[in-house]
């Protein structure tokens, strides 16, 4: 008795041919990270809105920098920047998967989104750190 798709001279099972090719590509990992970063952002963004309002209230440059010298503000802002760009990349990835049907364009768009999100997140973190250490 032979299994369909299985060569008698080859002991490899057909499973090898389909591994990693499922429709969801990486199972539920993407879905779960999207939700967990979303949950984190609920908490992070409420504080960020308040912070931005007090930045507007502070007005001048020196006062604004002083506000970012507080360790809590720096940590919270860095957490927000990383989580927000992570969440954005995951969301944009799904949008591109759904609407861009040309394989090459889709691939380039996915890579571009990853580069922009990672680069902007790093730039944001460096900006906060520079202000925090007073450079």
């Amino acid at each position: 008795m032979s299994t369909p798709g299985m060569d008698r001279s080859n002991l490899r099972t057909p499973l090898k041919e389909v591994r990693g090719l499922g429709s969801a590509k990486s199972g539920t990992r993407h879905f779960i990270i999207q939700r967990v970063t979303g949950l984190a952002l609920v908490l992070l963004v409420i504080w960020v809105v308040g912070f931005v309002l007090s930045l507007i209230h502070a007005g001048d440059y020196a006062h604004a920098r002083e506000m970012l010298r507080h360790p809590f503000a720096a940590v919270w802002l860095i957490a927000f920047i990383i989580t927000a760009f992570w969440h954005a990349q995951l969301g944009l990835q799904v949008v591109i998967e759904d609407y861009v049907h040309a394989r090459l364009v889709e691939m380039l768009a996915q890579i571009a989104v990853k580069f922009v999100c990672a680069g902007a997140a790093l730039a944001g973190v460096v900006a906060v750190v520079r202000i925090y250490i007073g450079q």
Partner: peptide, 25 residues
């Protein structure tokens, strides 16, 4: 979806603001 895409662009403005604050008055 639409607001998500808009907010991703908005995030870039947040980074730009932080960079300007780090850069100088």
């Amino acid at each position: 979806r639409a607001t998500g895409i808009a907010l991703a662009v908005g995030l870039l403005l947040v980074v730009w603001l932080l960079l300007s604050l780090a850069h100088g008055p």
